[in-house]
Amino acid sequence: MTAAALEAARVWLVVALTLLGLFFSFVSMVGVLRLPDLYSRAHTASQADTLGAGFGLAAVALTVGLAGAGFKSVLLLFFIFVTNPTAAHAIARAAFEEGIVPWTNGDERR
């Protein structure tokens, strides 16, 4: 009984985490479509990587168990957290060096 209940709770938790990850990935997609310029899109693109991938990998870890691939998913998250801001910064910095002025309220939508 308890083992079955625990198993059920785990499954539902995996479902919940996956849905949360999907939600933030969806928000990120909407943001990329709606936001006006490169800089503001870079903000929301990092959402997919942080919480989208974060919840997704948490669901993976819970599914496969911490012993094997679960640990690797934690490592994956760590590397995503290191590389994602570096890439976002590189893109934003390149735009800045090119002289692209960030969009402000009242500007034309680009």
């Binding site: 800089y39 903000h43 990092s46 942080t50 910095r93 735009a95």
Partner: peptide, 8 residues
């Protein structure tokens, strides 16, 4: 990494 702020 924090959405809403971006180091340029």
């Amino acid at each position: 990494l924090t959405p809403g702020t971006l180091t340029v």
